[in-house]
């Protein structure tokens, strides 16, 4: 009997089948609720259940399934390594390429109570990394102050409310599931509440990307 047969044999045993079914049912329920309510905590909860049950299953089942443990550990640990390297590289690049701007950025930091850094590039860029919002000089050139406030408010939502990217990616990997939530709409909604729909709409229009135009339409549709 190979290890997969043994694993499947173990799963169908009465002592295992019931807990396994409960895990699958609860994960699926959380997933369904997540899609309905769009609350990422539900998905994270489901992923934690699946991860714990995978670990428990691998350790407790009486099967010669060492190769599966190695495959699982390999996938998860290499995924974690790649994610951490990417995260480190982004942080390093962002730190290395910042320009000191005080009179423009200080009021933004005061208003939104987060550190704001300016990246030295003509390209239009804005993102949140860790607890810091990054804006490019190109973006600041292109938008007026109220539109920049809209972009910062959007990033503030990600910093304060979005799940940590590393943890959520790690959970998606270890539970062998996925990471489908996209809270850009929620961040836009938050920004519209903070700085006004007009400012956000103008900022999105100026950024001129297909996705932002789509989000722009969504904002007006939801009003």
């Amino acid at each position: 009997m190979n290890s997969l047969d043994c694993f499947l044999g173990c799963l169908t045993q009465p002592g295992i089948l019931l807990p396994f079914s409960i895990v699958v049912a609860s994960s699926l329920s959380l997933l369904a609720l997540f899609f309905k309510l769009r609350r990422y905590e539900l998905l994270l909860g489901g992923q934690i259940i699946v991860t714990v049950s995978i670990l428990f299953g691998l350790v407790s089942m009486n099967c010669p399934m060492y190769q599966w443990i190695w495959v699982y550990s390999g996938v998860v640990s290499s995924g974690v390594l790649v994610l951490m390297l990417v995260r480190y590289w982004i942080a390093r690049q962002a730190r290395k390429n910042t320009v000191p701007l005080s009179s423009f950025v200080l009021p933004l930091e005061k208003e939104f109570e987060i550190p704001v850094r300016v990246i030295d590039t003509q390209k239009i860029r804005a993102f949140a990394h860790g607890k810091v919002a990054y804006l490019s000089v190109g973006l600041l050139e292109h938008l007026n102050r109220d539109e920049v406030r809209a972009v910062v408010a959007h990033e503030v939502y990600h910093i304060k409310h979005s799940p940590d990217k590393l943890i959520s990616s790690l959970l998606a990997l270890s539970s062998l599931t996925f990471k489908p939530y996209n809270d850009e709409h929620l961040a836009d909604k938050y920004a519209a509440e903070v700085v006004g729909k007009d400012n956000l709409a103008k900022a999105l229009k100026k950024l001129e990307t297909a996705s932002s135009m789509q989000r722009n339409n969504d904002i007006f549709r939801s009003s």
């Binding site: 423009f104 000089v137 600041l140």
Partner: peptide
């Protein structure tokens, strides 16, 4: 070089 004002930033 960055030209920074109260309301505007530009290269």
């Amino acid at each position: 070089k960055v030209d920074e004002g109260e309301t505007r930033v530009r290269y």
